[in-house]
């Protein structure tokens, strides 16, 4: 554990909490892509199956359970509790275009051809593109509420901090996880355009139409 990794995890947690609290307090999930949130729940589910096979640390176990619970709570709020406010007309990204290549790639490129490893690889690849339905929705409607942009900012910051963590770990432990690093860099690149808008235009984002 190093400061970049810890800051990255905290940033990830903050992002998820911002979104959940926004939906809970406003009793509305307008402008939020339910499809992205389902993909993130799928990411956590397939990645954290090792909760049942290996024990790493109390921190690790607690964070995994928290991320799983929060992601399912978010999906529940969007599709059940506040489904009247769900903007399904603008949440139309075809997730099969993400899922099919990601499933294919996780079978081709993995550390071991075992069910758990393939699912772990699938989750890493899927995470790198899971935000695309949300970004697509913002492009389609041409706007995002400021609180939604804070969510995206912390979500992007989390992966950027993980890159710093990987650089640190490579230099101090000689550790590197090729699949995670490549996907993490790709994931961070998806946020760069958003970061640029966030900084230059302020919190409330309107894309030029």
């Amino acid at each position: 554990m190093n400061i970049f990794r810890l800051a990255g995890d905290v940033s990830h947690l903050v992002a998820i909490l911002i979104l959940l609290m926004k939906i809970w307090r406003s009793k509305s999930c307008a402008g939020i892509s339910g499809r992205s949130q389902v993909l993130f729940a799928l990411v956590f589910t397939t990645r954290y199956l090792d909760l049942f096979t290996v024990y790493i640390s109390a921190y690790n176990t607690v964070m995994k359970v928290v991320f799983l619970a929060l992601s399912y709570a978010t999906v529940y709020l969007i599709y059940m509790r506040f489904r009247n406010s769900y903007d399904s007309e603008n949440d139309t990204f075809r997730v099969e275009f993400l899922l099919i290549p990601v499933i294919g790639l996780s079978f081709l490129e993995n550390y071991a051809f075992t069910p758990l490893e393939i699912l772990w690889t699938f989750s890493i690849f899927l995470e790198s593109v899971a935000i695309m339905p949300q970004l697509f929705m913002i492009t389609k409607t041409g706007e995002a509420e400021s609180i939604t942009t804070h969510y995206l900012f912390f979500l992007g910051l989390y992966r950027a901090l993980y890159i710093a963590n990987w650089v640190w770990r490579y230099h101090t432990e000689g550790f590197y996880d090729q699949i995670a690093i490549v996907s993490g860099v790709v994931q961070t690149i998806f946020y760069c355009d958003f970061f640029y808008l966030y900084v230059t235009r302020g919190e409330e984002i309107r894309t030029p139409s």
């Binding site: 090792d50 290996v54 490893e117 772990w120």
Partner: peptide, 10 residues
């Protein structure tokens, strides 16, 4: 023996 890699990151 089955491969067991430890993914210690979240």
């Amino acid at each position: 023996r089955e491969f067991t890699s430890i993914h210690d990151e979240l």
